[in-house]
């Protein structure tokens, strides 16, 4: 799919889609959405990019190796469970603080959101790993 239109479109849509993905991730706690759906949207954005350019280019854009991303996502999710243990609470107990925001009411930030971020990372990682592995030309790219 070596279409110039697609490439140009992708250049614009990629950041937009990623932004949308992050919004879905963040609002998931209060509205439909969350790490999983957000992750899928982000992965879709990159997949589109891979289709428009080529998988190697996409890997370059992502920078971080997907295997590391998956591992990091798992670690993030686990860490969100360990944070409350520092305070002597049980594993996975939600810990919340309010972060003052310049405009509007303060934002509530808590370990469950961190957990959701981990989910997001894993989902992006695994989806792209699958899709890119399948799309990649038949040669070793290790």
């Amino acid at each position: 799919m070596n279409s110039i239109i697609l490439r140009t479109a992708t250049r614009f849509t990629l950041p937009l889609l990623l932004l949308f993905a992050i919004v879905v991730l963040l609002q998931g706690h209060n509205k439909p959405g969350g790490g999983f759906i957000g992750g899928l949207i982000a992965a879709a954005a990159f997949s589109l990019h891979a289709l428009a350019f080529d998988p190697a280019e996409t890997r370059r854009v992502i920078r971080i190796d997907l295997r590391t991303l998956i591992g990091a996502g798992l670690v993030t999710a686990l860490v969100s469970g360990f944070i409350p243990m520092v305070q002597g609470k049980t594993f996975m107990t939600g810990v919340w603080t309010k972060v003052p925001v310049a405009m509007g009411e303060p934002l509530k930030v808590g370990t469950p959101l961190l957990f959701d971020l981990g989910v997001f990372m894993v989902v992006v990682g695994i989806t792209l790993l699958m899709v890119l592995t399948l799309l990649e030309p038949e040669e070793k790219t290790d």
């Binding site: 591992g71 990091a72 670690v75």
Partner: peptide
């Protein structure tokens, strides 16, 4: 945790 760490250390 070991699994997650070893994945990072792939």
């Amino acid at each position: 945790c070991v699994a997650a760490l070893s994945m990072v250390a792939w």
